[in-house]
Amino acid sequence: MAAPPTDSFTEFQTNLTQTKAQSTTTNGNTVSRGPSPNRGASVPDNEAIGPESTTQQKWLTEHGIDKSKWVKLKRLNHMRYQHEDLNVITTFLKDFGVKVVKKTETERWYAGYGPDQYVYYARQGPRKFLGGVFEVDSREDLEKLVRDHADTLQTKGIEEMTTAPGGGSIVTILDPEGFPVNFVHGQSQRAPQQMPEKLVVNDESTKPRARQFQRFSPGPAAVHKLGHFGLVSAKFDVLREWYTTHFNIVPSDMLYIDLPNGGRKEVAMFAHLDLGQDLVDHHSLFLATLTPDSSIPEPHVHHCSFEVHDFDTQALGHQWLAEKGYQNVWGVGRHILGSQIFDYWWDTSKFMVEHYADGDLVNEDTAVGYGPAGHEGLAVWGPDVPQEFLH
């Protein structure tokens, strides 16, 4: 028997649970009704998050954060890495879905089809993570970074990016764990690029795709933009405080473990950029606690993630990378927090990179969610989580 229509996802879940609990008997023996069919729904943010949550403003107040002291970040701009062989990593990145827009003997810049001049920068040298890059609101923000973080400043003040596509200025500092964090301003945007065509999809009741057939071409999953990156730290509490105190970075979701004394310890944060009422990605930054069983015993970058057009694009990109012999980490599947369809790969320098599609959007009215940490909560469908992803 189908569940009656409801206006509330919570009510639907309650009805479904009650229906599954009902049974009939034959000669005193319980007769199972069988499993209920799966269901997907686009649920309002705060309803989906549930009661174990707090408002963003309350979270900021409880943590003593003064928004007037923030350096205002506008968006995530690109990633920076150092690779031993630029030709080898370039071949991988082309197969991953970006293209070279400029190169020198020791540097390369790679773009997607979005408005960014480039989404990935590679430099020749021993394998090294060079940090994520945020675009700031003004040059005054760069000047403030130089003043306030002089003790960890890695650039010679504000440096002009004279060789980079789009120009602009950059400042690099270190966070308390020693990860480089980069900030740019004044970079021009590219001319609009060709966007992929949206597929028209037929379902069981609405069939707008009349006499139009779905056809696809094999190839890399073209990257649109950089979505987020994640760091694994031995100083999780320190990093959480540092990023949320100095910048307009606020949590979307916090994960915790239960302690033997009945308390809780927060061990991971999915964080977005607070741009007020403007909608932004569910997370631009992910922080996680370094665990004793980690396969990488020291703090490290976990992965960086790039947006692609849709699920078919992602599946075709997965097939392309697999046929080229690259090493898949985990995917394709769908996350719970952030909702993204994910696909993780090792690049040729053993850095993890991700394709994602269909991510959640949030703003200042979206509540901060809390939930238990555990691999069983990482995906609603997809392959089992491999141990190497939990490094």
Score class of each variant (00 low, 15 high):
residue 7 D to C: 00
residue 16 L to Q: 10
residue 19 T to M: 11
residue 25 T to R: 11
residue 27 N to C: 05
residue 28 G to Q: 02
residue 30 T to S: 10
residue 34 G to Y: 05
residue 40 G to M: 07
residue 51 P to I: 15
residue 64 G to P: 05
residue 69 K to F: 07
residue 72 K to M: 09
residue 73 L to I: 15
residue 73 L to N: 07
residue 75 R to I: 09
residue 78 H to R: 04
residue 78 H to E: 02
residue 78 H to Q: 06
residue 79 M to S: 08
residue 81 Y to T: 02
residue 82 Q to M: 11
residue 83 H to E: 02
residue 92 F to G: 01
residue 93 L to C: 03
residue 108 R to N: 05
residue 111 A to Q: 11
residue 120 Y to M: 09
residue 120 Y to N: 00
residue 126 P to R: 03
residue 129 F to H: 05
residue 130 L to K: 03
residue 130 L to R: 01
residue 132 G to R: 02
residue 139 R to E: 13
residue 151 D to F: 04
residue 156 K to S: 14
residue 162 T to Y: 12
residue 167 G to E: 08
residue 167 G to D: 06
residue 183 F to H: 08
residue 184 V to Y: 03
residue 188 S to F: 07
residue 193 Q to L: 05
residue 197 E to Q: 14
residue 200 V to M: 10
residue 209 R to L: 10
residue 212 Q to K: 11
residue 214 Q to P: 14
residue 216 F to N: 05
residue 218 P to E: 09
residue 219 G to S: 12
residue 225 K to N: 12
residue 226 L to K: 06
residue 229 F to W: 13
residue 242 W to C: 01
residue 245 T to M: 03
residue 245 T to N: 08
residue 249 I to S: 04
residue 251 P to T: 06
residue 253 D to R: 02
residue 257 I to R: 15
residue 263 G to F: 06
residue 272 H to L: 07
residue 272 H to N: 15
residue 277 Q to H: 09
residue 278 D to F: 01
residue 283 H to C: 01
residue 290 L to A: 10
residue 297 P to Y: 08
residue 303 H to K: 04
residue 304 C to M: 09
residue 315 A to M: 14
residue 315 A to T: 13
residue 322 A to P: 00
residue 325 G to C: 10
residue 325 G to H: 12
residue 326 Y to K: 08
residue 331 G to W: 00
residue 335 H to Y: 03
residue 346 W to L: 10
residue 353 V to W: 04
residue 355 H to E: 01
residue 358 D to Q: 10
residue 358 D to F: 04
residue 359 G to W: 00
residue 365 D to G: 04
residue 374 G to N: 09
residue 376 E to L: 15
residue 389 F to N: 02
